[in-house]
Every structure is written in C-alpha cells, then in structure tokens.
Amino acid sequence: MIEIDWAGEAGRLRASAEGEGGWNAAVARTLVRDTDQVVADVGCGGGGMAKALAEALPGATVVAIDADPDVLEQAREHTGGLVRCALASMDDGAEPLRRAIDAPADLIWASASVHHAADQQAAVAALASLLAPGGRLALAEGGLPARNLPWDLGIGEPGLELRLDLAQDRWFKVMRESLPGSVPMPYGWTDALTRAGLVDVTTRSVLSETPAPLSSSQLERVVAGFRSRIERLTGGGGHGHVVVDEDWLEPEDLETWEQLLDPEGPYFLGRRTDLAVLAVRSVHLGHAPR
C-alpha cells in the first residue's frame, strides 16, 4: 500500500515550480489566446504553470486550485498575488471546482494531477464540464522518461537509470491501486478527452534538452530529483510515503544510488561533468464544442 502525504511534498513541488519556470512559460505561450478571460490550473502543485499563465495573460483571471492546503500555500507564495488560489479536489466532482473557478473557463491546465484521482475518467469529465464553449482542457500526462545519466557510470551495473524507471513504474501501479475507490482507465488520454465530450483532440510533445556539462544550479536540480525519487521508493526523506512489503530496488542498485547521492563519497553525481537533461513531456488537448 502507498499513501502520499502532500503536505510533506509541498516544498519539493515549490522547488519544481521554480526550476521549471522556463518550460512553463514556453508551454503557456502555446496554449493561451488573447481572448482568454478565465484560466485555471487544477492540481497546481507549487504554482509554476499558474504563474506562467498569469504572466502570459495580463488582465485575465487565473485560478490555482489544489486539494492540499500546504501545497496551496506554496503556490500562493510562488505566484506572488498574480493568481487567485482555491482549495478543491477533483475527487469531489465538478461542483467544488466550479465554485472555485466561479465562471466557465477558457482554458484549464492539469499537470500530473489527474493520475492521482481515483477515477481518472470521471475527473477528466468533471474538468471538461467547466469549460466555456470553445474552451480548452490541457492535460500534461506521460511523455518519455527523462535521461540524465550515462549508461555506464563506472559503479554498479550499467543501465541504472533504466532500472530506476522500471521500479518507479511498479511503484506507480501500486499507488494507483491504493487509492480508495480506484477505477482502471485502460485507454489513453486522448480517448479520455474524447469520452468526456471534447473535440479536436490532439497531443503535443515538448522536448527539453540541456547538454553536458550542466551549470551548478542545473546539476543540483538533477541530483535533488534523483534523491527525491530514491526517497520515494525507499520510504525515506520525510516525504510522507508509506510503502508496505515492497522492495522496489534491488539491494545492489540501492547501494549504488546511496554512493552516487553521497556528497562526501568518491562517486557523487554532483561532481560529474557528463550529466545532461533530455526529456519529452506530452500535453493532451481537447476543445469544448461551440
């Protein structure tokens, strides 16, 4: 069983919002229209995209919505008064979200949040019901796993990053099954948008690439990302993940990760010059009928 204490995740989500400012701004510019008046970021996390949308649409009403008050507070601080923040959960259906937005939305953004809803299709349908005629729902879900490491690190078995992805995929399956009232969704996000009554459904995938050598700040973010992933799989680090009777990583790989993430050790990732950033994130877009 896996439970996530989102209050324990709030700081990490704020750091992610700060680190992904460039990506958020670039994507926001491709989504907005000059005529947009009401925009919402549902499951806003640290408020990164909410802030980017507000900056791309001066004068529009932008609402950042999250189900956890501690996470929402981080978003409020990060957005600095540019957006209105509201507490609501997709698991409670459309009406709390409708009250939070307080008007039909021209654009709704939901990034890596719908997959935490017990019934993902019901959540997509709820979000779609909040759109004004011709409004758009953008779901940032999936893509390709990020790549940061060389295949052979000179320690442990080669392919360490690939095996971490596999372990995280198994973790995700159990996380989904652990949600109270979890409902399978055995089809893709474009089908989910279509089943919710949206039209002109499509997917845009965005490539992010920073070649080696990374700057010190970029390197810090990469190392922090790996540390967070390992803590998630081991139940450590105070993130509030409760994992029962599961060994996600092989002991040999876990030992390797401990050495790679040890700032005092000889194999610390933060001193390498061959780490890079290569990621592809997908945004699935549907339009409300006019």
Rank of each mutant, 00 (worst) to 15 (best):
I2T: 12
I4L: 08
I4G: 04
D5I: 09
A7K: 06
R12M: 07
G19Y: 11
V27S: 00
A28V: 06
R29N: 08
V38W: 03
G43M: 05
G43Y: 01
G46M: 13
V62E: 00
V63I: 12
A64L: 12
I65T: 02
D66E: 03
E73I: 07
R76E: 10
E77G: 11
A86C: 02
M90R: 05
D92Q: 15
A110Y: 03
A110G: 06
V114Y: 04
V124T: 08
L130R: 10
P133G: 08
G134N: 02
L137T: 05
A140C: 11
N148V: 05
P150W: 13
G154F: 09
G154C: 08
E157G: 06
L162T: 14
D169P: 01
V174W: 10
R176Y: 10
P186N: 06
G188E: 03
V199P: 01
V199L: 06
R204L: 11
S205R: 09
S208D: 15
S208T: 15
A212M: 05
G225Y: 05
G225C: 07
G235V: 13
G238D: 10
G238E: 10
H241R: 04
V242L: 14
E246R: 15
D247F: 01
D253I: 14
T256S: 01
W257I: 02
Q259W: 02
Q259D: 10
E264H: 13
E264S: 14
Y267E: 11
G286I: 09
P289E: 11
P289S: 13
